[in-house]
Design a protein around this nucleic acid. Sequence first.
DNA 1: AGGGCCATGTAACCTGTTACATGATTGA
DNA 2: TCAATCATGTAACAGGTTACATGGCCCT
Lengths: 178, 178
Amino acid sequence: MTGYDLSKTFNQSLNFFWHAQMSQIYRDLGTLEKKEMVTSTVEEQYGKPDKKIYSITPKGEEEFSKWLDDTDFSDSLKYRDSVLLKLFFGGSGDKGKIKAGLEDYLALNEEAIKEYEGTHYYLANNKQIIKMMYKDDISEEELNRNIAYMRMTLSKGFITAKGNIEWARECINTLEDL
Amino acid sequence: MTGYDLSKTFNQSLNFFWHAQMSQIYRDLGTLEKKEMVTSTVEEQYGKPDKKIYSITPKGEEEFSKWLDDTDFSDSLKYRDSVLLKLFFGGSGDKGKIKAGLEDYLALNEEAIKEYEGTHYYLANNKQIIKMMYKDDISEEELNRNIAYMRMTLSKGFITAKGNIEWARECINTLEDL
DNA sequence: AGGGCCATGTAACCTGTTACATGATTGA
DNA sequence: TCAATCATGTAACAGGTTACATGGCCCT
């Protein structure tokens, strides 16, 4: 893929739990190339800028599978949230503004759920497109397995958004009684 | 407070949604002083290193209340999680290892819940200590209001951890059938 | 004798964001 | 005519982590 393709794929699939700026993708592809994890070939185009197509090297595959093998998930508990930081000091702030902020937050989470429902539907009906994200010669079983894993990440999105909504409702009620 | 005190307070109270290394705290106190948001006085100690006690300036208070007033929480939806990133590509990894990782993750979240229960209890029974975190002349109502806000952040911890557990159980079941 | 607490920081590094720069094609 | 899409990137900055450096006190 090119950096541009990667950026699009990124924003379509794993966007809700990982995102990257184009500038970061281009820079990181450069460093990956220096480390010989990827190689690139340039494809000329007319009327458009040339494409720089990257492929993973055996060394890169090895590194990727090492990364996959590390299943220590304890880091993911160290979670950072500026909403909570702000609410922690909320007593010194404006109650009305905080309530309004939480109402927006609630609405955003409801929108997110709708988006995830769309993706859920998409995963069920666009296997061909998903196939393209992997090697072309992927088997039906392998594809289904990959889709099962994608569904797990999606499920996390649902549960997180529902939790956010539950929490925001609870906070709004508390604020009304305060 | 001194940098050291801040670090301890940090790790005791807002640790679960915000954390900082000592080196970061010392560095940031330095930049805050340059920006005239805080001032410092040195207190000599014998047998121990001298203390450098920081206080917020009026300019700092103003900046803080500006920060509090910005209640746009939409950023907090952009959430990043390496567990999900890894699970997204899980189909290429080792099923058994992933399952084991998720089981550890589940256990860690159960521990977190126990910790939050402890904090919940603490908030109810240690008002004097909490009082110290604010100005000394804080009124009972103001203190209770602040505690209510702290409880809201704590509640987020509970809901998040419960969601994590629910999700991990679901994934483990899916993996068993895969 | 060894570990933990007190208390300060610096330096290098890694990761992510924002702003800037270029320029043709295509569709509303 | 204006915005979006295609396609590349650089530079500066912001925020966070890791490793290093110092050194006495107190408790087991």
